[in-house]
Design a protein around this nucleic acid. Sequence first.
DNA 1: TAGATTGTTAATCGATTAACAATC
DNA 2: TAGATTGTTAATCGATTAACAATC
Lengths: 216, 216
Amino acid sequence: MKRAEKKLNLPTIRRLPAYLEILKRLHGKGIDYVSTTLLIDELKFESVLVRKDLAGLGIAGKQKLGYRLTELSGAIEEYLGWNRNDEAFLIGAGALGSALLGYSKLEEYGFKIVAAFDSDKVKGGTEIHGKPVFHISKLPNLAKRMGIKIAVLTVPADSAQQVADVLVDSGIRGIWNFTGIELDLPEGVVSHNENITSGFALFSVKLRNLEEVAPQ
Amino acid sequence: MKRAEKKLNLPTIRRLPAYLEILKRLHGKGIDYVSTTLLIDELKFESVLVRKDLAGLGIAGKQKLGYRLTELSGAIEEYLGWNRNDEAFLIGAGALGSALLGYSKLEEYGFKIVAAFDSDKVKGGTEIHGKPVFHISKLPNLAKRMGIKIAVLTVPADSAQQVADVLVDSGIRGIWNFTGIELDLPEGVVSHNENITSGFALFSVKLRNLEEVAPQ
DNA sequence: TAGATTGTTAATCGATTAACAATC
DNA sequence: TAGATTGTTAATCGATTAACAATC
């Protein structure tokens, strides 16, 4: 299969997992071909948009039939790199960190958190959702020995930058950042900020509008 | 204080919490006036953007000085409705649900989860992060008695719609939806979808690019 | 053939950025 | 006054939607 060369735009990339989820469900039902009309039955947006999105993946549909399901989901997984197997560390084993350690979908998508770290004193042999938890002082050594290049950062905001510096020194090149802090990182290290408060703000505004339309 | 009438665009609303966070930090340092140049020192984007964002809040800055910190953060909180006190139920006390029950920032922002529900058999007196957990069968009654109108939905995808129907019947009008499923809801009920896989997809693509630029 | 679908090009809409005027 | 800043209008950029051609 030829690698899709086209650069997809950001909203498209955000939508890809939703397509993949639906495709999985349809695959379970023994469906072989999916049309964009079938896909938008499940989603709530326009079929042109789906078609544009899929066009960038570099696969072709068949008129009257749609896209071959396995080919389509394969292309999405390949585009996202979810057919690979990435190993990552998680730092900050609080409530959010623990939730991510137990979020099995990540592994399904080729993203395996192999160990967690925390600044609290941890007893030897501690595990959360079956993943070992170490004191953060052990991270640099383990990262180098295991060749880990990816980290999930779920520490409190006020230690975010400091921990990030340690990660960079330990050879980490990609940081999935849940701290709400904009990290200062050197060239060659990428981060992606996940910010639940942004989504909460949108939800809040929707709630406020609701109350204004029909108070009490 | 006059209510800001202007409708802010979605990206602006998403940015408001970040401004608020910075303002809180600066407030702790005893700073009274903040300029947009000061704000962008912390963020990584353009000061025009910040100015445009703040313009919609309906407050005025002072040339050479900037905005009065308390007035600015007050206006943001009011716009988001974070100066109110909303009570909510959480449904689905798994890993993610538990994390949200322990996420104290929500309460700081006027959003209080008062109880959790799960379909698993729960013993009387069960608590997670100090919040009582009930069997879901108790929800309709409690929601009505307590006048709860907001729910956080963290159940597995395959029961999402079914639980949402129960919520609507119980008088819930706003659903913060973490299930990854697009809910079918009647007129007058709003939902906001939080989808961690979307963010993970963006992170994955950044990681993939990283590897392509400098393999191994 | 008629109809369902893919896939592309043009038009529109929305958000960011650039330019600059106003003012303390 | 000079300089730092707010705040607005115009230009640009990016994404969605509309229109439609192509084809099985």
